[in-house]
C-alpha cells in the first residue's frame, strides 16, 4: 500500500482557430448587418441556423438564401433562475428553441422575458440586436416578447 495517494492539478490551455467556411461565414456576417439569414436545402426547407450540408439528403445546401425573422415563435423553453457568469444575460432568462418567421427549423437562443410566468410555448418573440455587432451569435443579445402578443 502507498502511504499517500497523489494527485496534482493539470491545466491545459491553448489558442485554437476556427474557420467557418462559406455557409456559416455568410450567416454570421449577416448577423453583423442585423439580418438573420436562412439557407434553403435542395428540397426547399429553410434552415436557421444554416447548415453546410442537409442532414436529410447528405447534399450540400443550396446557394439560395432568405432573410427570416426578426420575429418568431417559441417552440420549447427552459427557465434559468440563477444565471452564471458566462451566460448571455446576467438576470433570469429562458433558453428557448425559436422558429423564426420564414424558417423551417428552430434556433437556440435566450428569451429575456422578465419572469418565468410570462413564458409559454407558442409565444411570439423578436430579436434584440446589440448596439455593436461583430459577426457572432451574441450580436442578438436576446429575444424579447413581441409587443402586443
Amino acid at each position: 500500500m502507498a502511504d499517500e495517494l497523489l494527485s496534482a492539478p493539470h491545466v491545459l490551455e491553448y489558442d485554437y482557430r476556427r474557420s467557418l467556411g462559406e455557409v456559416l461565414s455568410r450567416f454570421f456576417t449577416g448577423l453583423r448587418d442585423r439580418k438573420i439569414l436562412g439557407v434553403k436545402t435542395n428540397a426547399g426547407r429553410v434552415l436557421v441556423p444554416p447548415s453546410e450540408y442537409d442532414p436529410e439528403s447528405g447534399d450540400a445546401t443550396s446557394d439560395d438564401w432568405v432573410e427570416v425573422g426578426p420575429g418568431g415563435v417559441v417552440k420549447s423553453w427552459a427557465w434559468v433562475n440563477e444565471p452564471l457568469g458566462r451566460h448571455l444575460l446576467d438576470h433570469p432568462f429562458a433558453f428557448a428553441l425559436i422558429q423564426l418567421d420564414g424558417a423551417d427549423t428552430a434556433l437556440t437562443h435566450a428569451v429575456d422575458a422578465g419572469s418565468e410566468a410570462s413564458m409559454r410555448t407558442g409565444m411570439r418573440v423578436t430579436a434584440r440586436f446589440a448596439d455593436d455587432t461583430i459577426g457572432a451569435i451574441g450580436d442578438i443579445v436576446a429575444f424579447v416578447p413581441e409587443e402586443g402578443s
Binding site: S19, G21, E52, Y53, G58
Partner: peptide, 25 residues
C-alpha cells in the same frame, strides 16, 4: 485552408472518392 470548415475539408476528399468510384451518397 481557411476557406473551408473542417467539415468542408473532408467533404472535398469524400466527394472525389465517390466520383472516382462512380457512387452516390
Amino acid at each position: 485552408r481557411i476557406d473551408v470548415s473542417q467539415a468542408g475539408l473532408l467533404r472535398e476528399a469524400a466527394l472525389r472518392a465517390l466520383e472516382d468510384a462512380g457512387c452516390q451518397w
